[in-house]
Design a binder for these strands. Structure first.
Length: 277
DNA sequence: AAGGTTGTCAACCGCCCTGAC
DNA sequence: CGTCAGGGCGGTTGACAACCT
């Protein structure tokens, strides 16, 4: 009863990094037709890419509004908390960081935060929070190369994205709600990893710029109202209302939920109003 | 300077979900 | 109700760059 092979396997498919020419073709097509119906994209554009590859290229790199480069301490903190809250539901986490893609967040978690966690766990006795997490120090992130004279073509997608900034207002898709709906069941037990990492991030909450959360909340509420016009009023207070799905496991959520949703904001540092498609 | 190792991240793979028929 | 097919997601891979010896 196996599924038929995806359409990607039906024709000769090009793999590997995208070229500027391919990007331009894809962007031009989406400008004209809008995102969606990815199955038709290779056919209509002549791109020798499968539909999934086209979608991925668009959502991860070409879509306007995507933020590249270093993760801010605030974004980092949000990822930590949201990862503890949702587990590896990167799409759900990404919905709280609209300028970041799930792929970016996933990569950042795997390459930076996991490492940081191990470092923290290796300390005995535990470090004080300001040692474990010093937001005043510059971050050494390889994304820096993207803004420099990188030979990696992917970085030039920024330029393509910038060309589309005017176009992005035309889209009305409520990605957030879709992602929230995709949030799965919260893991029953939190690993020691999460607990340990949170232990060090949590005291930072006072300093943590919660404005992001506040902004996100307003954003979420906005999206929620957007959604309510589509499917009713079953979600009244942002994404966490989806806990109806996870009522059988509410305990680990309470603190994080409160923190995520009730954090008040007073300052905005480097987070812009999310722009969604 | 050269070779080896490690880190990063774009892209792919495979599974699951959902809607159409 | 079952099948098919598109879309979405998380995990993994591999190419490349940076760093180390």
């Amino acid at each position: 009863m196996g599924r038929p092979p995806p359409s990607c396997d039906k024709v000769v498919i090009k793999k590997g990094p995208w070229t500027p020419e391919e990007d331009i073709v894809l962007v031009s097509y989406i400008q004209e037709h809008g995102p969606g119906n990815w199955f038709a994209v290779p056919t209509n554009t002549g791109l020798l890419r499968c539909s999934k590859s086209c979608r991925l290229r668009w959502t991860n790199y070409l879509k306007p509004g995507i933020k590249r480069g270093n993760f801010t301490p605030h974004e980092e903190g949000m990822i930590i908390h949201l990862q503890a809250l949702f587990g590896n539901k990167w799409a759900a986490i990404a919905s709280y960081l609209p300028q970041r893609t799930d792929n970016d967040i996933k990569n950042y978690w795997n390459t930076h935060l996991k490492k940081k966690l191990k470092k923290i766990q290796a300390q005995s006795p535990p470090l004080t929070p300001h040692v474990a997490y010093d937001s005043t120090k510059p971050r050494n992130h390889s994304d820096l190369k993207i803004t420099e004279n990188s030979s990696v073509y992917a970085s030039s997608s920024q330029n393509i994205s910038s060309l589309l900034q005017e176009w992005n207002n035309t889209s009305t898709t409520c990605d957030l709600d879709r992602n929230i709906r995709n949030i799965g069941k919260i893991p029953t037990e939190f690993s020691d990893d999460y607990s340990t990492l949170l232990q060090y991030y949590r005291p930072q909450q006072q300093q943590f710029d919660c404005s992001i959360l506040s902004k996100d909340r307003s954003f979420i509420e906005e999206k929620s109202s957007c959604d309510s016009s589509q499917k009713g009023s079953d979600q009244s207070s942002g994404p966490i209302t989806d806990q109806e799905k996870i009522d059988d496991n509410p305990a680990p959520l309470s603190f994080l939920d409160e923190w995520l949703l009730d954090a008040s904001a007073s300052q905005v540092e480097d987070m812009e109003i999310p722009q969604m498609f």
